[in-house]
Design a protein around this nucleic acid. Structure first.
Lengths: 294, 294
DNA sequence: CCTTTTCTGAAAATTTCTTTACAGACTCGC
DNA sequence: GCGAGTCTGTAAAGAAATTTTCAGAAAAGG
């Protein structure tokens, strides 16, 4: 008997789901996720309620219960109940922990706390005005948009660029190599937008770039940390995200969160165009696929 | 209406029992005590099981449910379930608004809610075993480490790569262009590690890559979403992160969080070496700077 | 100690839930 | 683009649970 099959015959319902997830069909996965998202309470409902809440049919629920090694759905329900009894009888308070199986001191939980706090602080201090105006800037196709990041934030610049590419044209991702930057600046027109990512340790070249871009009449938007990159001097809008982490490095999660929220907001503003572009993109991907096959 | 009577019509099941305890008959009190002793799990069983466990008859159970203001026993059961849901549901989810100046419906706050929920779900389901073993794999300098991402996850691959570069050598970031992939596979040795990022829409080429890598004897680690990339079939460890967002795209924040936590854990394991490398890196940056100045 | 009232549980009746059967939809491979 | 196989949901059959009925038992009051 394989490890996966054994996992499907024993252990908690959650474990069995994980163990056999690969064998599950689309509808079953949908159901499995619903069960895990609201574990274990959802599974304590009747089969009809579970099916309804998961958006699948009743037979799918019954079938999956069998697939997980139970005699039928009621038996799965019994298992959930007894698991719950175990958990509740067990006096260890498990509720305020993130990863329940891990001790509070595990790096996962400490990191989760830090990220949580970073997001909270970032949001509390964010300027709604800067947010909305940045969204307007990025949604405006009259303006070219340039995106650049430093050593550790290059990935974020790339991320923003990739998503914005679907939403609009007129985008440029500025390469890491600062030798080439003057060429980009040469092309900037008044009204263009330059998005800069810069967290400590701040990069001097980015400061120069911002300075030059502003001289050319470009509007600078900056994503930085709470200590603020010197680029802020040249930025029309800047976002100061918390980046503290229980590690030798900083956490960029809060920055990524703000970036994603901005992408979502821009996409809302330009939904019709975005939808068309997404459709076109899908078609192109399909063509590439066909092309590769032969 | 008296306080007791009101208590019997509202509040938790436990409260209702206490409120009307004086009105209960002998068999009912016996039942009530059994329910409270094993609260709330016993009450989630069938009426027959409850009757049996309490040493009373089924009609007694049904009658008491009505006496407590329910329509019947199933309704009491529903109430217990929803109480449980309240208790178990993440207490942090009921946040005081994130960005206080913004309305709850502002995209920032809706996004914050989604990200919060994604992190919570991701952590709840993460396999600690997979986490720890992945950390060990990445900390082991005997193994070459390869990192690759898809169109939307390339940035995450890049992020992991950039950070790991400081911690250790023997790292390769696989380029986006899948034409070049066979060359990388050619170099893989048994024991090497391949980290793949793949979220929907899943990329067929990544599946092929994973397959080839495994054939070469490499260990595959996968970061994917809750629907799981087909790459999971070939992965020794996979992380299923929640990516839901109030937008046409998915949120990669939870994935980035797990990646950062892993980086932090690897760095802890290799702290002495990492510190030396960081120092050396600083020096090199300083030299570059000097070089540029003249 | 007997009558009246209330309570309790066995068993039937009913309702609700679960499973099975089947046919349409979809996918995958050729 | 087409056929074999798989998956999924509707609807009916079957199983299980719940409620009701009712008769006997226990308690309360005289």
């Amino acid at each position: 008997m394989s490890a996966a099959a054994r996992g499907a015959q024993n252990g908690t319902v959650a474990e069995r789901i994980h163990a056999r997830f690969d064998d599950l069909t689309r509808a079953e996965r949908q159901l499995a996720n619903a069960l895990l998202e609201n574990y274990p309470v959802l599974g304590l409902n009747s089969i009809a309620a579970v099916a309804d809440a998961s958006g699948v049919s009743m037979p799918t629920v019954a079938r999956m219960a069998k697939k997980l090694g139970f005699d039928g759905f009621p038996e799965l329900k019994d298992k959930l109940r007894s698991e719950l009894e175990e958990t509740i009888t067990n006096p260890i308070a498990k509720h305020d922990r993130w990863a329940e199986s891990a001790p509070d001191t595990h790096i996962l939980n400490r990191f989760a706390d830090a990220v949580q706090e970073n997001m909270h602080q970032t949001l509390r201090q964010i300027s709604l005005e800067a947010f909305n105006e940045t969204v307007d800037l990025l949604a405006d196709t009259e303006r070219e948009v340039y995106v650049v990041g430093g050593r550790l934030t290059r990935a974020l610049a790339d991320y923003l660029f990739t998503h914005m590419q679907v939403i609009r044209g007129g985008l440029t991702l500025i390469k890491s190599n600062s030798n080439t930057w003057p060429h980009y600046v040469l092309n900037m027109k008044p009204g263009d937008t330059l998005v800069i990512f810069d967290i400590r340790r701040y990069e001097y070249d980015l400061l120069r770039l911002a300075e030059m871009a502003r001289t050319q009449g470009a509007t600078v938007v900056l994503f930085t940390d709470q200590w603020r990159s010197p680029v802020a001097k040249h930025a029309a809008h800047s976002f100061h995200c918390r980046i503290e982490a229980p590690s030798a490095w900083d956490s960029n999660v809060a920055i990524m969160f703000v970036v994603e929220a901005i992408i979502a907001a821009v996409q809302n503003l330009r939904w019709t165009e975005t939808r068309d572009r997404m459709k076109a993109l899908e078609d192109l991907f399909d063509q590439t696929k066909l092309f590769k096959k032969f």
